[in-house]
Design a protein around this nucleic acid. Sequence first.
DNA 1: GCAATTGGTTCATTATTTACACCAATGGTT
DNA 2: AACCATTGGTGTAAATAATGAACCAATTGC
Lengths: 262, 262
Amino acid sequence: MSSTAAKALSLLTHFSERTPEWGLSELARRSGLDKATVHRMLAVLMQAGLLEQQAETRLYRLGVGILRLARIREATFPITTIIGPILDRLTSETGETAHASLLSGSELVTVAISESHKANRVSLSAGEILDLHSTASGLATLAFSEPALADRLLAQPLAQHTPHTEIDPTRLRRLLSTARSKGYAEADQTYEIEVYGIGAPIFDTRGLACGAIGVATPVHRMTHRVKARIVARVVAAALEMTMKSGGQAPDRFNRIAADLAA
Amino acid sequence: MSSTAAKALSLLTHFSERTPEWGLSELARRSGLDKATVHRMLAVLMQAGLLEQQAETRLYRLGVGILRLARIREATFPITTIIGPILDRLTSETGETAHASLLSGSELVTVAISESHKANRVSLSAGEILDLHSTASGLATLAFSEPALADRLLAQPLAQHTPHTEIDPTRLRRLLSTARSKGYAEADQTYEIEVYGIGAPIFDTRGLACGAIGVATPVHRMTHRVKARIVARVVAAALEMTMKSGGQAPDRFNRIAADLAA
DNA sequence: GCAATTGGTTCATTATTTACACCAATGGTT
DNA sequence: AACCATTGGTGTAAATAATGAACCAATTGC
């Protein structure tokens, strides 16, 4: 069913900030593939520079080729370069941790983070993959993206991360509708307990959401007044990002942003 | 001979700063693979997030997954984060363009660049792959790396980039020997005409070179006096990089660096 | 309206991948 | 020291997945 190349690339998904290094046997066990198969695949990934093996421990980790490709992508489509300063300002304006996530297939990949300076803050890890149905960024993206994406997603069974996670398709569609009319989405402990998220969409040249900017706060700090201020800043930041990356926000969203700025 | 996964990954090598986007037919022609094959492989690479397809032009380009992996790698092994400031200082000290390259298999990948502010300067492109035998960085790396690497490389026919490029194995071995005793390597228009390069090795935990720091200047500016100053700075920068990344320089190199600093 | 592109798909033939068993080496336990 | 359970890594027939010529449909230029 799945191609060998796909299986080989799926090995890359197991490398994360928390598990940046893998031994052969361990990775074989985790991926459910045969050890011999994994060994051959790792060799191929190494040859391509996507992985490298430490000479002493024989552990595998992400390789220099990744950096090469990232540099090329940034030199030609400088998304993270553009978004860095915007996030930094958003963090200093709101005092809370801000992040940007981009759609990759039907996954939402966190590509930039600007951490709050407060002692009690929400901390995100690099390269984290966010849910589309249970995070503010995810809902914001979904609400303004191709309808087919939401259709596909809501047809599947969804993960219930916390008691507050909404997994009912019809109620989720209502949330998306609300997000469309308000211009942002919120997530009250639906992804992680004690965390309140607010997210607004970034648009591509077609006027469809290709990602989102989000702000996450400890839930106890999220009063009505704080929320109003954060919403205004997040929407403004998302609009700025859309413009600077050559995207085009739909009129509806532009009007909302203008109202919030006033 | 070569696995399908390897062929699929080889498609990634065609994406560069100059050709960041490819159409299906064009890439098939360039890679020498069948169009149907390339199409399937591109689908797999897209699914893994390594590539993405623009909706309008249908062109393929490097995807968000690359950024995700790069973030994870940087969060856990922050090479480029460490090297950025070092290169910036090197550039301001020497007034010339500095770059860092890391060994990936038997390729030297440029992972960071700090451009000179002078009007007439050497300009490098992101993610460029450097020759091991015709660049200062390459020779510096080769000289202090595993002997097997040089053996393998010198057994192959080498590319003659300019009339000054040395491709004779025995003479190249003499250059490597010189580099080992001097602690740095130089490249007088051997990779690109009009460009003079000076490179010094970065070491890993085993005391073997895992890359190099290089400075490239227009050849007419490279007087004896200028060269002496650049050499001292480059070697110092390479040593600093080695220390900050947890590497261990061999005693021989430490002595050379101490002499140059005096 | 024709010719030459493009991106994309199909399906029988073919060549590759797979998984089991196996090896050598390491490290901890009795 | 013998033992057991690991580790990374490697051959090999059997099973599976990749291949590529021919084929669409849609643009584009003339």
